[in-house]
Each structure stands twice: as structure tokens, then as C-alpha cells.
């Protein structure tokens, strides 16, 4: 029987069942332990980045090539016929007729869902505006499982910009399938959106809104840091907020030994460099895991069995 993700579009985390998320995480683990160079042999993947990206694009390209596949595409929509006014629907119809799967990032929300309606091959969303970035969530889940040995009943604090951070929204949705407990630590202006809190209420998932990072450190298994963007505040306001949501190595003295600090990167100054040397820092390994999570996803989408 084919795996449940075979020939499926990968658009949004709420489309996934718990079992499908577990399948990707398991497969990523297998590929990290035992690398394969044959799973995408003879497959051609279209990499369509209508908006620039560093880690996502390079890790997708690495994933395809390490698995023995080929990749074509573009890294900036400015050089494509989109610039001449071609609709995304038309572009995707054509690109999908050349390739076995399309990986895409686009500045508009809903672009990947729309592309999936016009594509003859699976579409994998590499980020659509401020909406979804499912492969980031898959690599986050893989990293959490790798560091904690389980996805069940963990306690996670999300810190920083919880309003605009799409990775935070999708990861909250995904972890709520595994009985997580959440702490939200954010300035009032960047609080978790109501719709996410309402979803958690509906599912009976416990969450607490707190304003001090120090208070939650002894209570959690995972600290998921995000960047508070300077441009969202005036200078005085930013200075006031900035100090409250910075993690320094000395703050981790009260942490559980299993606590890992994650960050979708790039970081600016919300995690001081001295944290890097603590056993809690895991964000660089997390970025590396992006390749394994994307390898797992591509393998499952393009092979009946892995």
C-alpha cells in the first residue's frame, strides 16, 4: 500500500493528520541515521522561489541532490514571466508539466493552495506570505522528537513575536495534536492571535500567557525563540520591549537538563552568543535538520514506499 503522503500536495499543517506528521518525523530520523542517495533518482524537482530565501531554498536543493534527484528553477521571481504579468496559475501549469514535483515560495498568502489546483504534480509549500511554512514545522517537530525522544505531552514556551511569526502558529497547531502544554511569552502588541487561542480552547489545550521569560524557564522542555522585528515598533518602545525577550546563558541556570532552545533563524540579538556554548542550544542543529525533514517529505511524496 502506498504511504499516505504519496503524490499529495503539502500546503498547510492543518491538512496533516497526527499519523502523517509522525511518518515524516520517523522518515527524517531514518534518513539522518542512514543516508540514502537513491530515493529521488530519475526525479526532477522544480524549485520556484518567487521570493528570495536562503535556508529554505538551499536546504531543499541539498535534500534533492543528496537523494540523487535533479533540480531546476529560479531563486527570484523578478527574472520570470510573472514579472511580465503571467498568472501564477499559468506558470504552475507549465512548470508542473516539466517536473515531478514543484517546491515553491511566494509572497502572497494562499499561493501554494492555488498552485496545487493548477499543478499536475505535487506542490510543496516553502512559504506563502505570512500564512504557512509547513516544512519549517516538520523540521521543528523532527528536532523536538530528536531532543526529547517523544512528541507527547511536552511543555513548550514560544517567545518573541507570536503575532506575525507563521512558524509559531503552525507549530502550535501541530503540537496540539500531541497533547502539548504552552506558555506564550510576548509583548502585548505581538501576542498570539485570537484565532489560534480559540482553536486551542476548542480542543481543550492548556496555555498560559506570561510576561517574564525567567518564570517559565524551569517549567519547560522546549523554548522556541523568535525575532522581534525592530520595524514593528518606534525606537523607544522597541528598547523597552527588547530587553524583556532576550535569552542569556545565565538565565538557563534554572532550566531542566532536557531543555532545548530552538529558533527558526535568522537570530539577531534575542539569543546572546554565550547561549551557543550551553548544552541547551540546539538552533544550529535544528537548521541542519531542515535537510533531513525535507528529504523525508520529498521521498514520501515521490515514492510509494520509503
Amino acid at each position: 500500500m502506498a504511504n499516505p503522503l504519496y503524490r499529495k500536495h503539502i500546503i498547510s499543517i492543518p491538512d496533516f493528520s497526527r499519523e502523517e506528521l509522525e511518518l515524516v518525523v520517523e522518515t527524517a530520523g531514518k534518513l539522518k541515521r542512514t543516508p540514502r542517495n537513491d530515493l529521488l533518482q530519475g526525479k526532477l524537482v522544480g524549485s520556484c522561489f518567487f521570493e528570495p530565501s536562503t535556508r529554505t531554498r538551499l536546504s531543499f536543493e541539498t535534500a534533492v541532490q543528496r537523494l540523487g534527484g535533479d533540480i531546476i528553477g529560479f531563486a527570484d521571481g523578478g527574472n520570470t514571466s510573472a514579472k511580465k504579468g503571467e498568472t501564477l496559475a499559468d506558470s504552475i501549469k507549465i512548470i508542473s508539466s516539466y517536473t515531478d514535483a514543484v517546491v515553491m515560495r511566494h509572497p502572497k498568502e494562499g499561493a501554494a493552495r492555488l498552485a496545487s489546483e493548477f499543478s499536475s504534480v505535487p506542490v510543496i509549500n516553502g512559504g506563502d506570505g505570512s500564512n504557512q511554512h509547513p516544512t519549517q514545522t516538520l523540521l521543528d517537530l523532527f528536532t523536538i522528537r530528536e531532543t526529547q525522544g517523544t512528541l507527547e505531552n511536552l511543555t513548550i514556551a514560544f517567545v518573541g513575536d507570536l503575532k506575525y511569526g507563521r512558524t509559531v502558529h503552525s507549530l502550535t497547531q501541530a503540537l496540539s495534536l500531541f497533547g502539548a502544554r504552552f506558555y506564550f511569552v510576548a509583548p502585548e502588541q505581538l501576542a498570539m492571535p485570537d484565532y489560534i487561542c480559540e482553536e486551542l480552547d476548542e480542543k481543550g489545550i492548556e496555555y498560559t500567557i506570561v510576561d517574564s521569560l525567567d518564570d517559565v524557564i524551569p517549567l519547560i522542555d522546549i523554548m522556541y525563540m523568535t525575532r522581534v522585528q525592530r520595524e514593528r515598533f518606534d525606537e523607544t518602545e522597541f528598547k523597552k520591549i527588547q530587553g524583556q525577550f532576550v535569552l542569556r546563558a545565565d538565565m538557563l541556570k534554572t532550566a531542566r537538563t532536557n531543555l532545548k532552545v530552538l529558533h527558526p533563524l535568522p537570530r539577531v540579538d534575542e539569543i546572546t552568543v554565550d547561549v551557543d556554548a550551553t548544552p541547551h542550544a540546539y538552533y544550529f542543529e535544528q537548521a541542519k535538520n531542515g535537510v533531513y525533514a525535507r528529504q523525508a517529505l520529498l521521498s514520501l511524496v515521490l515514492n510509494e514506499t520509503v
Binding site: 498568472t87 496559475a89 502572497k108 498568502e109 494562499g110 493552495r113 492555488l114 506563502d128 506570505g129 480559540e198
Partner: peptide, 21 residues
């Protein structure tokens, strides 16, 4: 209502899922 939604610029009909709260 989201001006950055792809549905504005493409050959598709708008589509909403309705939920009573």
C-alpha cells in the same frame, strides 16, 4: 478582505469555509 491574498490576482473564485460561533 486580505489584500495580500492570492485569490485577488488569479483566475479563481473566492471560497470561504463558514463556521457558526
Amino acid at each position: 478582505p486580505n489584500s495580500n491574498c492570492i485569490s485577488h490576482a488569479e483566475p479563481v473564485k473566492s471560497h470561504f469555509f463558514v463556521k457558526a460561533q
